[in-house]
Every structure is written in structure tokens, then in C-alpha cells.
Design a protein around this nucleic acid. Structure first.
Lengths: 244, 244
DNA sequence: CTGCAAGGTGTACGGCGTACACCATGGGCG
DNA sequence: CGCCCATGGTGTACGCCGTACACCTTGCAG
């Protein structure tokens, strides 16, 4: 009988329980005070026991990020690309707000897990399905990156490079699992699959997004744009003194 | 004579030398391996000696961030707001690229130092001088924030709040030192200086920037926008195989 | 000459991540 | 049935970390 674990035996740990406990503990006490030792204590176990389920604290953090990404709503169908992207990004924001440590941790990750790649692939697919060219999708993903969160940097150079023991994933495996990412990456490297790892022109991507924003700002200014809040303010009498 | 320090006496430490050494060490060996002990060794001094010049490691990191911000070029005059903002942001980017650890550290800072506030104030002033209303400037600064780097969050609630021992800066001092920030903050709180610390509607600010980008994306798509890179690709023959 | 502040030292404490050797259990197979 | 070994939990130990606290040295102001 499995449920004689009620008192005598503690239910055995597994990776998932460890990750969930870590997320909960970070939510409660903050990421900077999350330690393997405290996490172990929380789980009623000795610190080294955790290492049977995660290879290191770094891997624990990777898993925690995956858990947060898992909370993001899947894409909705039936709406245009814009609504779909908008909803998805706002849902991502909600997930990050539930776990205030998450955005900071994401920024420190250097490996992209399959979960992260899957999220990126699905987002990429939304633009392609919305009639964006692979080229434009590429730049647009970069521009959106910092808003969705930080993992845009070096979007397409995965694993290979300085990393020891690059995971032996073939191009075909990548293409099957992350078709949209690969499509866009191929476009960015002028169709040369061997150049996919070489990254893109970060300076260009940065200026692309910057100019998009600056142009948008200018248009709003010229149109005399005003926020709802500000319109209310104009209609209401000024609050405290300060009207020199 | 002061320069008999050449061999006999080591030149005495000071805050500036400590900060500069810390920046250099982080540049060389990475921020995650920067420790008070290693920094002290680098300076030929015992670890605790550092604490005569910085109160804690946190304060050291604050100072390092200030040093990086100090590398950003001052605003240029004589050009329109757009060029001026553009140059400044690109200069900030260059500073952050020289110190790859800096953006990550900035994101972990919770106190805004006078240097940070000064940078923000000057950037704010560029929009005001460019004919932007205080209201629009407010939202625009938020939208730009994540691109310049991460410190936009909770832009205007400084110090007060949960922090113990809030620095006793008066409203007037703030207004004198950071006139543009205060102007914009006042606009955001409908002219009530006592409400300046209450922050703004983060959700609104997020959606504002998101929609600005999405609208920009759409315009580019409809215009059939294509990057230079992509136009070159179309003109050249395809590179390697992969042509099904 | 004296005293004191500024700056440097030494020791110590509690916490961290984790390597490594060990032990308990229980299911598969002879 | 009896063994064997994989799985998961334990205990100890190491080297690192930030920093509190008491102390010592120096050089200048009085």
C-alpha cells in the first residue's frame, strides 16, 4: 500500500516537489535568502538529499524559472496576432508579478532550457502566423524581449561557443522541436544553418527597438496625446497648494 | 613630501580607489566572483580594511553602479530632443557593454543614489525641453526605462516606505536638485506633493509601452519593412544547401 | 608632548554550496 | 527464498563568504 506514508514514512522527494517547495520558499522569504540548507529544512530533509534531485543550485534556479514560465497562459486562438501576443505578454507579466524574484533570476540564467525555448518558439510562431516575414519577426522578437523580460540577449546562439560539452542536438532535432525559431534564425543568417550560432547584430537590434519607441513617442507628442489620468486632472481642481 | 609612498608606505586607500579597483576586478573576473576578500587582496590590504571606506558590500555595489553611470556622456546640446535622447541612450548602452556585469547589478539595487537620480533627471529634462508634456514625459520615461536599463520600476517612490531611517530630504531639496523629476512626479499625482511617493499605475505603464511597440510592429509589417540585411540576402544566391 | 581620529589588522562567527563516503530500503532475479 | 544493487537519504568536512569587534599604528592639532 502506498499510503502508509501518512505517518511512518515520509513521501519520497522528487524533482517536482523540490522545485515547488523552492518556488514557494522564494515567494515567502525572498530569493536572496533561499539556500539549499533552508530548502532542505523546509522539506524535512538533510541538505545533501536535494542533490539526488537537482545537480546544483544553478539547476534548481533553472527549474524554478521553468516552473514560472509554466504558469503563463497558452496562446489563445481565434483572435488576431496582436490580441494574441498582447494577452500572452500580459499573462507572462502576471506570472512574473506573482513571483517577484523571477525576473531577476531569469536575467542571470545563461542556459536556455527547453521550456524557455518552447515559449520563445510559440511566441515567434504568433508573429509568423500574423503575416510577419521571418526577417521582421526576428527584429520584433528582439524588440519585445526586454519587455517580456530579459532573455532576448543572444537569442539564437544556444549552447555552442565557450560552453564545455555542447549538448549533441542536431539541426534536424532543433528544427522539429522549435520550427519557428529555426525558420527565423535561418532568415537571419541568410539561409546558412552553420551560421545560426553566430548571433546577430545586437547593436542593430537595440537601435531598432529604440527608434521604434522614439518614433512612437514623437507621434504621440505631435498628436497632443494625453493619458486618461491627465484628462481627469485637468477637469478637477488642483489638490494641495503649490500653485505659485 | 607625499611621494615617499613610492616604496615604503602604500598610498592610503580611499573610497574612490576601492570603487575603481572593484570595477576593474569585476570586469576581469566577473561579478559573481567579486568578493570583499579578493578585492582586498588585489589592493594589498586585509579584508576588513575595506569597511573603513564602504559600509557593506551592498554599498560597494551601489558605488560601482555610480561609477558606470559616470561614464555615460553628458547630453549634447544643439540637436533636437530625439537625437539628444538617442545619443545618450546609446552612450549608456556603450557604458554597460564595457562592464557586462553592470546591468545585472543595476537590477538588484533597491536604493536610488543621487547619481542615478541625476541621470534620470537629466533624461527627463530632455523630453520636457523637447516639448513633451509632463504627463507624456512620465509615461515615455517608463517606456524607455527597460531599454535604457531596468531602474524604471517604482521610478518615483524614493526611500520612504518600508525602509528604516528614510533620509530626511525635504520636498524643497528634491525640487531644487531634481527639478524635472519633481515636475513630472507632480503631474503624475495631480499636483499633490504628498502623494509623490505613492508610485504610479505600473500596469498602465507596461501596457502603454507594449502597445506602442505592437503598433509600431504593425506599421512596419503593413509597410512591407525589411532590414538591410534581408535585402542583401534576397539579392545574393542562397548560401549552403538546405533548399529542399 | 599629548591625545585623538583615521586607517589598517587579526580573530572569530555563522552561513553558504557541495564533494565524498556511507547507510537503509525494497524490488527484480537467480 | 536469498542475494544484489539501484534509489534516495545521511554525516562529515572543506573552503569560501560577509562582517562584528577589539586592537594597533600613525601623524597631525592642540
Amino acid at each position: 500500500m502506498a499510503q502508509r506514508t501518512e505517518a511512518g514514512r515520509r513521501a519520497p522527494l522528487n524533482r517536482d516537489r523540490v522545485l515547488r517547495a523552492a518556488v514557494a520558499l522564494a515567494d515567502e522569504t525572498g530569493i536572496e535568502s533561499l539556500s539549499m540548507r533552508k530548502l532542505a529544512k523546509q522539506l524535512g530533509v538533510v541538505p545533501m538529499a536535494l542533490y539526488k534531485h537537482v545537480a546544483s543550485k544553478e539547476e534548481l534556479l533553472d527549474g524554478m524559472v521553468d516552473a514560472v514560465i509554466g504558469e503563463i497562459d497558452p496562446p489563445v486562438g481565434d483572435t488576431g496576432w496582436k490580441t494574441a501576443v498582447r494577452r500572452r505578454v500580459l499573462s507572462a507579466r502576471q506570472a512574473l508579478l506573482r513571483h517577484p524574484w523571477a525576473s531577476r533570476v531569469i536575467e542571470t540564467r545563461t542556459n536556455r532550457t527547453p521550456v524557455v525555448l518552447g515559449y520563445m518558439d510559440s511566441m515567434t510562431g504568433m508573429f509568423l502566423a500574423g503575416g510577419f516575414s521571418a526577417d521582421l519577426t526576428h527584429h520584433v522578437m528582439h524588440a519585445l524581449g526586454n519587455r517580456m523580460w530579459g532573455f532576448t540577449r543572444e537569442l539564437f546562439d544556444d549552447g555552442q561557443g565557450g560552453s564545455p560539452d555542447p549538448p549533441p542536438v542536431t539541426f534536424d532535432e532543433m528544427a522539429k522541436r522549435y520550427p519557428h525559431i529555426v525558420e527565423v534564425a535561418m532568415a537571419a543568417t541568410r539561409g546558412d544553418p552553420s551560421a545560426v550560432g553566430l548571433g546577430c547584430d545586437e547593436q542593430f537590434e537595440f537601435e531598432f527597438a529604440l527608434d521604434l519607441l522614439l518614433d512612437g513617442f514623437e507621434r504621440l507628442r505631435d498628436r497632443g496625446w494625453t493619458s486618461q489620468r491627465d484628462r481627469e486632472r485637468a477637469a478637477a481642481p488642483p489638490a494641495a497648494g503649490q500653485e505659485a
